[in-house]
């Protein structure tokens, strides 16, 4: 370092531009930090945005040109986004996914509210270990209980002579594991929020005529709206993005019309199966798969744009609890 500064002061004229920059950065470290910041920024932007760009490139390149593309689309075929819906009933796959996510979110918010009330507002022995145990569930690898769950949902487990219900291919087979996996985070978020609502407000509600449950839903939940929104949005996104059970707990079939969803419980393949439906035994329609992926990302992207402020404030509010 000393020698570098020595050189720097020795003769500026015969140094290259890089050496000169290094010299000035040493005298002014903020410059180096700024440079590193831009390096990191470019790196993260590239790793997050390039896959999306690549999807777009794949999607708009006509099928026959797919063999030779480099960084830019080879040809331009925007019709692919309509073709997606013509080839398979992709809108029904999407609707299935949205419905599954909404149902799971509703179940999670309801049950996690009850649990969050208990963990956040009541004192009882073993509260902390129990909370840890619940959080541990969310880190459990789904692969570990896939086989038993599959046997259970296909009616192959008998307890006292009664076979388990055949839930394979129904929404239940997906909603149940989703709820179990994504519940712990919501419980954690909601318990910190509910714990911050003053005791007096709950007492007041109970004296005024609610039960404890009534106080939870009429006073504590509305006052914890940012927390409830955070838990809800995170659950929704997690379910919508889920791969494992979405792939394995159904046969990939969907109803042929929107009304068909309501009438049958057997056609609940989510978005993921919709993308995979372009992969047939005769070949893979990569441009359609890419277009379908882009369409599939849209609802979550919109949700995040709308709710991101709430999510961030919700997460930090929990973290900053004094």
């Amino acid at each position: 370092m000393a020698t570098e500064t020595g050189q720097q002061t020795g003769g500026e004229a015969d140094q290259g531009p890089f050496t000169r920059w290094v010299g000035s950065a040493i005298r002014n470290p903020a410059k180096a930090y700024r440079a590193l910041f831009y390096v990191a920024l470019v790196f993260f932007l590239f790793t997050t945005l390039f896959p999306l760009y690549w999807l777009l490139v794949l999607a708009v390149t006509p099928q026959r040109n797919l063999q030779d593309i480099f960084l830019t689309p080879n040809g331009f075929n925007p019709g692919v986004f309509i073709e997606v819906f013509e080839t398979v009933p992709f809108h029904i796959y999407m609707l299935n996914s949205l419905l599954l996510a909404v149902i799971t979110t509703a179940i999670v918010l309801l049950l996690a509210s009850l649990a969050g009330y208990v963990f956040g507002r009541l004192e009882f022995p073993g509260r902390a270990p129990l909370m840890l145990a619940i959080l541990a569930i969310s880190y459990f690898p789904p692969a570990a209980f896939l086989v038993p769950l599959f046997r259970l949902f296909t009616g192959n487990v008998a307890v006292a002579g009664i076979n388990s219900p055949t839930w394979y291919n129904t929404p239940g087979a997906m909603v149940m594991p989703f709820s179990a996996l994504f519940m712990p985070l919501s419980i954690f978020i909601l318990s910190t929020f509910y714990g911050q609502i003053p005791e007096g407000l709950e007492d007041a509600a109970r004296v005024e005529g609610t039960t404890r449950l009534g106080a939870l839903f009429r006073v504590i939940m509305p006052l914890s709206a940012p927390g409830v929104a955070t838990a809800g949005v995170l659950t929704f996104i997690a379910v919508y993005n889920e791969f494992f059970f979405s792939f394995l707990m159904n046969d990939g079939q969907v109803a042929q019309s929107i009304l068909g969803i309501v009438s049958s419980s057997n056609h609940w393949a989510p978005l993921l199966q919709g993308v995979l439906a372009f992969q047939t035994q005769y070949g893979s329609l990569y441009n359609l798969m890419a277009a379908a992926s882009i369409i599939g990302v849209l609802p979550v992207a919109i949700l995040v744009v709308v709710a991101q402020e709430k999510i961030v404030s919700g997460l930090t509010a929990g973290a900053l609890k004094e």
């Binding site: 003053p198 007096g200 407000l201 007492d203 007041a204 509600a205 109970r206 004296v207 005024e208 005529g209 609610t210 039960t211 006073v219 509305p222 006052l223």
Partner: peptide, 18 residues
């Protein structure tokens, strides 16, 4: 509490802020 025919005024006033 709701079935006791009582009403209560609290030290911290406890109005529902929403």
């Amino acid at each position: 509490p709701k079935d006791r025919g009582i009403a209560m005024v609290f030290q911290n006033i406890a109005l529902f802020p929403h």
